[in-house]
Structures are given as structure tokens and as C-alpha cells.
């Protein structure tokens, strides 16, 4: 990581034509205080993400992917800068609105799956609907339908401990889609999975993204993600290094081999 001045993001012409914007960050800076020192992890991130896009945030370990991701997801407040979701500045939201945002607008997928261990697959998927105020029986029907969609119709009553990693991540995906969110945020969704299972999970995410017009934002090191992403945002040392469209990336990957 060289100490070069921030290169302006070489964004492809933000072809805004007809596309609705769903996430916008403006000069997001995040600093951590480590005793005396201040560690600046995000050094001014400005980007726009459109409805229905599949975005991968790529970059070396420690470059700030998760930090950016947490700022977008309303999980962590940036030191300065703004994050807009659906044109609402999320720093202005109160606790109830933030909870609503997390419940209805955003679906989270974690590297460690994060299923509630005491609940069955069905109950895990029902949980966000229950938090959203849906009745038990409606939630149950809808959860069963989504689990069927991710190929787990025979595992409804299994606890997470009785499921493989790939199956657990499928449950987590079903849970993230439970309240028909506008955005799916996935931080290293394939980080704990083997190559093949990872591929299937990515494929599933891509299909759900296309089917439901959901925006998927995924932070990852996983080059398998490149193939399915509409755009790849490369982060290096807290800056946007470049933003690439899929067709351009294919050439790059080809050159790498």
C-alpha cells in the first residue's frame, strides 16, 4: 500500500438514465482512535448505487471493505460524510426508524451465517417478519415459501447445528429476503464456504437479485463474485481505487491468467 495521493475514482459514466438510485455515499470518512493515534480507515468514499444492481466491493484485506459496508448498512456511524438510503440521510433517523430500516429495507448476510442457534430454519426466516409485525401464521407460510425457493423445503424444522455450512447460508439468504428488502448487504458471504458451495451461494444470490429486483452489495475477496457483478468497486487503502463494469472486468481477469 503506497502513500500516493487519492486518485479520483475512475467511475464509468454514471449512466443514470432511467435508473433509480438506492444508495449514495458522500465523502464518507471513518476514523478509529487507537490510543494516541487516529487511524483513518475510510478516506472519503463517494459512490452511487442504483436499484437492482449487483455490486461487489473488492480489495485487499484491511482496505476498509467491511467498514464501508457497515456504514452503508447503518451498523456504524461514519466519522464524517453522509449515507443516503432511498434519499434519506440515515444519520437523521431515530432508533425506531433505524430498526425499521434494518428490518424492512435491508437484509443482512454474514460470513458466519449468524442463524439463531435455538431456532429452526423456519423460525429463523420468520423472525424478521415477526419483528416487522406479521402474524405467526402468515410469517410461517411466507418463510416456508422462501425456504423452498432456496432449495431447503426438506429442512424447515432443522436447527442450524443440523445443517451444513452451505445450507445454513441458504437459510441466512432466505432470512435476508424475508421482508422483501430493497438492499441485500453481504459481507464475505462465501468466506466460510468451500469453492463449490460458494459458487452455488453466489449463483443463488444472483438469481434472487434478478428475480426480485433487489440491490445486492457484497464485500468480498472472492473472484468468483466478479462474474456475476454488474459493477465492481475496488477499494484500496480507504479509497475507491476504480469502479469497473462487468464487461471490463472479464478482460482484466482474462489478462491475469
Amino acid at each position: 500500500m503506497t502513500e500516493t495521493a487519492p486518485t479520483p475514482p475512475t467511475a464509468p459514466p454514471a449512466s443514470n438514465d432511467g435508473r433509480e438510485e438506492i444508495v449514495r455515499t458522500i465523502d464518507v470518512i471513518k476514523e478509529y482512535r487507537m490510543g494516541e493515534e487516529i487511524l483513518r480507515v475510510l478516506k472519503g468514499i463517494t459512490l452511487t448505487i442504483f436499484k437492482g444492481e449487483y455490486i461487489s466491493i473488492m480489495g485487499p484485506s484491511g482496505s476498509g471493505k467491511s467498514t464501508l459496508f457497515n456504514a452503508i448498512g447503518g451498523l456504524d456511524k461514519p466519522t464524517s460524510g453522509k449515507v443516503f438510503i432511498d434519499e434519506v440521510d440515515i444519520a437523521q433517523l431515530d432508533a425506531l426508524e433505524l430498526a425499521w430500516l434494518r428490518c424492512r429495507k435491508i437484509g443482512y448476510i454474514f460470513q458466519t451465517f449468524n442463524l439463531i442457534p435455538v431456532m429452526s430454519a423456519l423460525e429463523n426466516v420468520m423472525l424478521p417478519m415477526i419483528f416487522g409485525g406479521m402474524s405467526n401464521s402468515d410469517a410461517q407460510d411466507k418463510a416456508a415459501a422462501i425456504l423452498k425457493r432456496v432449495g431447503l423445503e426438506n429442512r424447515l424444522l432443522n436447527k442450524p447445528g443440523q445443517l451444513s455450512g452451505g445450507q445454513q447460508q441458504r437459510v441466512a439468504i432466505a432470512r435476508a429476503f424475508a421482508n422483501d428488502p430493497a438492499i441485500i448487504l453481504a459481507d464475505e458471504p462465501t468466506g466460510n464456504l468451500d469453492l463449490n458451495t460458494g459458487k452455488q451461494i453466489i449463483e443463488l444470490l444472483r438469481q434472487m437479485n434478478a428475480e426480485r429486483q433487489v440491490t445486492v452489495i457484497s464485500a468480498t475477496h472472492d473472484f468468483k463474485m466478479l462474474d456475476v457483478s454488474d459493477r465492481i468497486i475496488w477499494i484500496r487503502d480507504g479509497h475507491i481505487d476504480k469502479i469497473q463494469l462487468r464487461q471490463d472486468v472479464k478482460i482484466d481477469v482474462g489478462e491475469m491468467h
Partner: peptide
């Protein structure tokens, strides 16, 4: 901690 954090991500309120 992870379970509680996850519930919050899914929309659980502090009071809950």
C-alpha cells in the same frame, strides 16, 4: 453477543 447483534440487525428494538 452475535445472536443479540443479529436480532438487532433483523429489526429487534432495545426494549425487546
Amino acid at each position: 453477543f452475535r445472536e443479540i447483534g443479529t436480532m438487532k440487525c433483523l429489526g429487534a428494538l432495545d426494549s425487546f
